[in-house]
Design a protein around this nucleic acid. Structure first.
Length: 407
DNA sequence: AATCACCACAACCGCCAATTG
DNA sequence: CCAATTGGCGGTTGTGGTGAT
């Protein structure tokens, strides 16, 4: 079994390499709507030119809503080391002890940080001036996996393995995207708790609920200060829209995908599948792809520059209004292209619409949202040349947007 | 400023185990 | 029981980013 079988897919017919934001979006959209019962068939059904394995890996290691990203804490690293002593390279087993961490991530951390650190400690057990006595005593039997230390040793770039790791740990903390994390343990979504453990800056605060999506959005956006933040504890969809339109903060894909990992298997319907218009419009997806190429990776800086150039601090209200209109038009277009509008609006079951049919932007309450933007669009002032697609793209979930730099 | 070397990590590949008909 | 299929795992590679020269 397993030997000599045919390749999982025709390599010449599938796209390889980094995933584009459009592909990510497409995969997310499909999985949220239909789940992932069959990875092999998924790419075709979703209109992705990818191998099913690739889709699975992308989902599990990156797009899954409960995936925890960011640097590993010292405690996590030590736990990995200890587990590796007993389990060896059983990355999936090790990963199972770290909710939200993927085996691939742990494997990478081991290969890039921990293995080197252990190797250096083995060669110079207590030569470090930092307090590493704990690790020195706990690390006894991992020398079997030290094959790639020469580069570090020969490079003047780093002072020592331990110091290096400590250094990287700190720099990582500075460079990690400041996004809210959502961890899922046993199906329960926990928010914020682990962030404190990781000493990550708490960018997330609770914002009092607004009376309408429009007003909450307006109030949030117009509050153009660094303490304008949104609460991830808000789970209702109008409030989630606040998150989406939080221009100042990066938007973690987790927020979009809180329910993505709950495939509505019972909702699976091949006829619906066939009606999903994802397969056809490659132009649209290519447009999304190409869109990413013109955007800077640092969305916050770009936004600030945009605001500096366009706003000049005088007509901020108009600017925000125009931005809102542009943004919402963009999302409407996006939803339209995805074929999401009709299904939602024709659905009389609000809960179903919000939790199942709202595929792309699950946090948008389209009833109030669309009614509101219909008014906005009709009353739209002259378009602001500084806004538009780029502005909308800036709000793209950071995980998805980060790939744009690589396109 | 250009080039080089190294690092980090996303993604790929091949194999194996479990499942299904 | 067997073969085909699929999911999952671990090893490895490719590539962008970054610091040093």
């Amino acid at each position: 079994m397993g030997r000599g079988r045919a390749p999982c897919c025709d390599k010449s017919q599938v796209k390889r390499g980094p995933w584009s934001p459009a592909e990510d979006l497409r995969l997310i959209t499909f999985i949220q709507k239909h789940g992932h019962e069959n990875w092999r068939a998924l790419p075709k059904q979703a209109g992705l030119l990818r191998c099913g394995k690739s889709c699975r890996l992308r989902w599990i290691n990156y797009l899954r809503p409960d995936v925890k990203r960011g640097n590993f804490t010292k405690e996590e690293e030590e736990a990995i080391i200890k587990l590796h002593e007993t389990l060896g390279n059983k990355w999936s087993k090790i990963a199972s002890q770290f909710p939200g961490r993927t085996d691939n991530e742990i494997k990478n951390v081991w290969n890039t940080h921990l293995k080197k650190r252990l190797s250096l400690q083995n060669s110079d057990p207590c030569g470090d001036e930092h307090d590493q006595s704990k690790e020195c005593s706990s690390i006894t039997s991992s020398s079997s996996s030290s094959s790639s230390t020469t580069s570090v040793l020969s490079s003047g770039k780093r002072c020592s393995g331990v110091v290096q790791a400590e250094h990287e740990h700190q720099s990582d903390e500075k460079s990690i995207p400041k996004t809210p994390r959502i961890e899922s343990r046993e199906g329960h979504v926990e928010i914020g708790e682990k962030m404190d453990q990781d000493h990550e800056p708490k960018e997330v605060q609770v914002v009092t609920s607004a009376t309408s999506s429009a007003s909450s959005y307006d109030s949030n956006v117009s509050n153009n200060t660094s303490d304008h933040q949104v609460g991830v504890s808000k789970l209702d969809h109008e409030e989630d829209m606040d998150l989406l339109f939080d221009f100042k903060g990066f938007y973690d894909v987790s927020n979009i995908l809180q329910e993505v990992n709950k495939p509505e298997v019972s909702d699976y319907n091949p006829t619906i599948l066939e009606s999903v218009p994802l397969e056809a419009d490659y132009e649209f997806w290519n447009m999304l792809d190409s869109l990413g190429t013109s955007l800077q990776p640092n969305h916050e800086v770009q936004l600030q520059e945009s605001e500096a150039n366009c706003d000049q601090g005088s007509n901020f209200g108009v600017q925000e209004f125009s931005r809102e209109v542009e943004t919402k038009k963009w999302f409407r277009y996006l939803e339209s292209e995805l074929g999401l509008e009709g299904t939602t609006e024709n659905d009389n079951n609000e809960n179903r619409a919000m939790h199942q049919e709202t595929v792309l932007l699950p946090h948008l309450n389209k009833y109030s949202f669309h009614n509101h933007i219909d008014d906005l669009i009709e009353a739209e002032p002259e378009s602001d040349p500084c806004l538009g697609f780029s502005t909308a793209y800036q709000m793209w979930p950071s995980n998805l947007a980060q790939n744009s730099a690589a396109i």
